[in-house]
Nucleic acid binder design. Structure first.
Lengths: 193, 193
DNA sequence: CGTCTATTTGAATGTACTCAAAAGCGGTGG
DNA sequence: CCACCGCTTTTGAGTACATTCAAATAGACG
């Protein structure tokens, strides 16, 4: 469980064994059930989580009652509302567990402690946030230029193992389309193969 | 000119006078003309720029020849292709100057030097990237849920001074719509007021 | 003045949404 | 074992949002 975390950290920045141990001791395991909300709109986000099993979605609920999914997080992904977590102001987002699962959680205080006492942790999260942001820029370009059809095909090709764990409703909220229309896209693609 | 930079840095992280001087000495002024390209697709992005005057746009050009604008950068904004700059791999983006202007530029090497020799600089860019990323998440939610109409109105309300410096073509590439449709939106809004 | 670029307009078309209804598909309890 | 429940998916009709293409109009600048 911590092995997965250590492997993930090592992918972004080299830490000494001491630094790694020191940092990892700040995380606490938490098991969650399907449909459990880790965060709801209006709450201050108190945690950053590293997913060791399960599947989560981070989404916004607008005034019409429809949902926009910012991202999914599965094994070895990080999950938090970065805005609320860093500012400690009320969140605009929900975080829901879609399956029974497990996370390693760190609190805002402990992360602040890590920033101050383990210098490389600044670098770690600087690098991770840069990568996440670059990925978001690519997704924005896709949103600006591609039809739902193409975005769906790209998603299923890039994340096949994730796509098959999602319902139409969940995937539609990520693609920014209605689930009915997603159903029609699937039908069209199935016909043409 | 450097005052603007120092003020901007101070907004994100407290640096000592020494650290501030040390860091700012790594920047070099560069003047640019209207329509000048700072970066083109395929190039490796060698700089990160702090805009002291002028206006820039960072955009992608797709295979149909249409443009998607990731963001505009005006006075006190930072401009780079964060992906290409950090990985030193070829860029997918263009950066164009829309007016005569001036930037303070730092090279990848000098920034790396700063990360290694001025610890607070890690924190500075960690914090800045987090804020930029949070803003991008909000824009993504808008893209996923709002019509072009609403996105246009939100943009002009939030960035009135920027909106009036852009052509329809430039703004449309940011909103993800055709410039003809943007023209129709403007007309509709003008009629209804 | 002519040239170049930006904007507007209209018609036809394509993309995606809403609403309503039907069909499919696990579970769970009787 | 089957009937029923809740949830997901599919389907169709009608509508709204947005694009493409072509042409006309308007501004800016040397």
């Amino acid at each position: 469980m911590f092995d997965l975390l250590k492997k993930n950290i090592a992918k972004h920045t080299a830490l000494s064994d001491d630094e790694m141990e020191h940092f990892c001791r700040l995380f606490h395991p938490q098991t969650v059930k399907r449909k459990q909300l880790l965060l709801r709109e209006g709450d201050v986000c108190k945690f950053e989580g590293f997913v060791t099993s399960g599947l989560f979605r981070v989404y916004h609920l607008d005034s019409n009652g429809s949902e926009q999914t910012l991202y999914f997080a599965t094994e070895s992904w990080w999950v938090t509302d970065i805005d609320s977590f860093t500012t400690q102001r009320p969140s605009q987002l929900f975080i829901e567990s879609l399956q029974d699962g497990q996370l390693l959680m760190i609190s805002a205080q402990d992360k602040e402690y890590a920033y101050e006492h383990i210098p490389k942790i600044e670098k770690l999260f600087r690098v991770m946030t840069q990568k996440t942001h670059a990925a978001m820029q690519r997704r924005m370009i896709d949103m600006l230029s591609k039809t739902a059809d193409k975005r769906y095909q790209d998603f299923t090709e890039r994340y096949p193992e994730l796509a098959c764990r999602l319902t139409n409703l969940q995937l539609a909220a990520y693609l920014g389309i209605s689930h009915e229309f997603l159903s029609k896209i699937r039908k069209k693609i199935a016909r043409s193969t």
